[in-house]
Amino acid sequence: MSAVVTAVRAGDRAAESRPTPTPGERAGTPAGPTNPAAALTTLREAVEARATVRIAYVDNHGSYLERVVDPVRVEGGQLTAWDHRSEEQRLFAVHRITAVDAV
Score class of each variant (00 low, 15 high):
Asp101Gln: 12
Val72Thr: 01
Ser17Pro: 02
Glu25Ala: 15
Glu25Val: 12
Leu79Gly: 08
Val69Ile: 00
Ala102Leu: 05
Phe92Ser: 02
Ala38Arg: 13
Arg96Lys: 09
Thr98Lys: 10
Val58Tyr: 08
Val4Asp: 01
Ala49Lys: 13
Gln78Lys: 14
Glu66Leu: 06
Arg50Ser: 13
Val5Tyr: 13
Gly77Thr: 10
Glu45Trp: 07
Ala3Asn: 14
Met1Pro: 12
Leu91Pro: 05
Val103Arg: 10
Tyr64Phe: 07
Glu66Asn: 08
Glu48Gly: 03
Thr42Glu: 04
Glu45His: 02
Asp70Cys: 03
Gly28His: 08
His61Tyr: 13
Val5Thr: 12
Thr20Cys: 14
Gln78Pro: 00
Thr80Cys: 11
Arg90Lys: 04
Arg85Cys: 11
Glu75Thr: 11
Glu16Asp: 07
Ala56Ile: 00
Val53Gly: 00
Thr80Lys: 05
Tyr64Leu: 07
Ala99Cys: 05
Glu25Pro: 02
Ala37Pro: 02
Glu16Gly: 09
Leu40Cys: 08
Thr98Phe: 04
Arg9Tyr: 14
Val58Pro: 03
Ala49Ser: 02
His61Asn: 15
Val74Ala: 10
Ala56Pro: 01
Pro23Ala: 15
Arg18Cys: 02
Asp59His: 06
Asn60Ser: 15
Asp59Lys: 08
Asp101Tyr: 05
Asp70Glu: 11
Gln89Thr: 12
Ser86Cys: 01
Glu87Trp: 04
Ala3Tyr: 08
Ala93Trp: 02
Ala99Phe: 07
Pro36Phe: 02
Ala14Lys: 06
Ala49Asp: 08
Ala102Phe: 04
Val68His: 08
Arg54Leu: 07
Val69Tyr: 01
Glu48Cys: 01
Asn60Phe: 02
Val68Cys: 06
Thr41Ser: 11
Gly24Ala: 07
Val94Glu: 05
Arg96Thr: 15
Thr6His: 06
Ser63Asp: 14
Gly24Met: 03
Thr22His: 06
Val94Ala: 12
Ala14Glu: 04
Asp59Ser: 13
Thr22Cys: 11
Asn35Ala: 09
Ala102Arg: 15
Val69Asp: 01
Leu43Asn: 03
Val68Asp: 09
Asp59Thr: 04
Asp12Lys: 12
Gly11Met: 01
Gly77Lys: 11
Glu87Arg: 11
Glu16Asn: 11
Ile55Asp: 14
Gln78Ile: 15
Pro71Lys: 04
Ala81Val: 02
Val5Ile: 15
Ala3Arg: 12
Ser63Lys: 14
Val72Ser: 08
Glu25Asn: 11
Met1Tyr: 14
Gly28Ser: 13
Thr20Glu: 10
Phe92Arg: 00
Val8Phe: 13
Gly76Cys: 08
Asp70Thr: 09
Ala15Tyr: 09
Glu88Asp: 11
Trp82Asp: 06
Leu65Ile: 12
Thr80Ser: 08
Ala102Met: 03
Asp83Ala: 05
Ala31Ile: 02
Glu75Asp: 14
Ala56Val: 00
Ala27Pro: 03
Val4Ser: 05
Arg96Leu: 05
Ser63Phe: 07
Glu25Asp: 14
Thr6Phe: 10
Arg13Phe: 09
Thr41Arg: 09
Thr34Asn: 15
Asp12Val: 04
Ala37Ile: 05
Glu88Asn: 04
Ser63Met: 10
Glu45Asp: 11
Asp70Tyr: 00
Pro30Trp: 06
Arg9Leu: 15
